[in-house]
């Protein structure tokens, strides 16, 4: 399953990205250079005629070579995890219905990229949390002054009825309350990148704590 889709991905990218250029230059030499999708070392396909459609056999070989190259460039831990997952997938003859319904497969490289991206948002939130100037505070009072490491923010207890706000409150309502009152800054819109980052940072500090909405 994974092997097949990686093959398709490799060939499509390779042909799409390089065929137009290489067919003119390398036509007489009867070979094609294929650049892998991450921009690594190109792979040469010999015995290639202009306008030729690669046989399944040749395409598979090309995809395998591209994969070997990609794996060699990865962090060893990622490479090992990938190979393990690929081999496990190969032993499943028929994909389950759930798997075949998925639009894409998740590979370890995805996980690394996604974690980095989420980490970027958390790091931005960390900065905002520790510097009131970045959220428009007027009196030198930052979030971290009362909440070191986001302690006592208890995001796991929302939504809950907040008497003083006279409504069922979400974490973002309390963030805004703190920004407007102790911090003395302007309220943030719910989808403001700063609000999203602050929520991300606060939630990340409570990893593993059970959700307990409504707790007082």
């Amino acid at each position: 399953m994974i092997r097949k889709s990686m093959m398709k991905l490799g060939v499509t990218t390779a042909l799409g990205a390089t065929l137009a250029v290489t067919s003119g230059v390398f036509a007489q030499q009867k070979e094609m250079k294929v650049v892998p999708c991450d921009g690594g070392e190109p792979v040469t396909v010999a015995g290639f005629e202009t306008g030729e459609r690669l046989s399944e056999d040749k395409a598979q070989k090309l995809a395998d070579t591209l994969m070997e190259g990609w794996l060699a460039r990865q962090d060893p831990a990622v490479a090992v995890a990938w190979v393990r997952e690929r081999d496990a997938a190969a032993t499943n003859a028929e994909p389950s219905q759930a798997q075949s319904m998925q639009s894409t497969d998740i590979n370890p490289r995805d996980l690394v990229l996604w974690e980095k991206e989420v980490g970027r948002e958390i790091a931005y939130g960390d900065k905002l949390f520790h510097d009131d100037k970045l959220i428009g505070g007027l009196e030198g009072v930052s979030c971290a002054m009362c909440h070191p490491n986001a302690s006592n923010t208890h995001p796991e207890t929302y939504p809950k009825f907040q008497l003083q706000l006279k409504r069922s409150a979400l974490l973002r309502d309390m963030i805004n309350w703190c920004i407007e009152n102790p911090v003395r800054g302007p309220k943030l819109a719910a989808d403001d990148p700063k609000m999203r980052a602050l929520e991300a940072y606060i939630l990340a500090q409570r990893k593993g704590v059970p959700l307990e909405y409504g707790k007082h």
Binding site: V141, C146, P148, S151, N152
Partner: peptide
């Protein structure tokens, strides 16, 4: 000035 939470 401000109170601190009890440490974890």
């Amino acid at each position: 000035a401000w109170p601190w939470p009890y440490a974890p």
